[in-house]
C-alpha cells in the first residue's frame, strides 16, 4: 500500500493541476468550479505529505511554505472581485461584462470577472488545505512549533 502511494504521489501533481484547470474551464458551460478544482489539487498535495512526510514534502516543493500567504491572497482576490460592484454603484457580486454585453472568448472560456473569483477561490482552497495539513502533521509528530 505505502509503496504504491510512494510511487504515485510524486507523479500525481501534474495531472491533478491539469484536471483542476479543466474543471474550472468546464464550470462555465457545465458543472464545475474553483472549489472542486482546489480540492483535487489539495488532495494530490496531501498524498505527497503522506508519502514524503511534511519536512521532505516542503523541501522538495518550497512553494508549500508560502501557503498561508497564498491563501490570504486568494481570499483577497475573491473578495475584491466580489465587492468591485459597489465601487461603481452596482450590487456586490455583480459580474462584468454584464449579461448580454460582448465577452472575450478564449476557446469556450468566457473571460468574465467570475473567472477571477473562481481562481481566487481555487488558490484559497488549495492553500488552506496545505496550511491545515502542515499544522496537523507538525502537531501529530510533535515537531517544532
Amino acid at each position: 500500500m505505502s509503496s504504491i502511494i510512494g510511487v504515485v504521489a510524486p507523479r500525481l501533481l501534474g495531472p491533478a493541476l491539469i484536471l483542476a484547470a479543466a474543471i474550472i474551464v468546464k464550470g462555465y458551460a457545465d458543472v464545475g468550479d474553483g472549489f472542486s478544482a482546489g480540492v483535487i489539487v489539495a488532495t494530490a498535495l496531501a498524498l505527497r505529505y503522506v508519502s514524503l512526510g511534511w519536512e521532505l514534502a516542503e523541501r522538495s516543493l518550497p512553494v508549500l511554505r508560502r501557503a498561508p500567504q497564498v491563501a490570504t491572497a486568494g481570499l483577497l482576490i475573491a473578495l475584491a472581485t466580489g465587492f468591485a460592484g459597489p465601487l461603481v454603484g452596482d450590487p456586490p457580486f455583480t459580474h462584468y461584462p454584464r449579461a448580454g454585453e460582448s465577452v472575450i472568448h478564449i476557446g469556450t472560456l468566457e473571460l468574465i470577472t467570475a473567472v477571477v473569483f473562481d481562481l481566487g477561490l481555487f488558490l484559497f482552497v488549495t492553500a488552506a488545505f496545505v496550511v491545515l495539513i502542515h499544522h496537523l502533521a507538525r502537531l501529530a509528530q510533535g515537531g517544532p512549533r
Binding site: L132, H135, L136, L139, A140, G142
Partner: peptide, 13 residues
C-alpha cells in the same frame, strides 16, 4: 473538523 482536530491535538499535547 479541521479546527476541532487541531484543538484535540493541542489538548492531547
Amino acid at each position: 473538523t479541521a479546527l476541532l482536530l487541531v484543538l484535540v491535538l493541542r489538548v492531547v499535547d
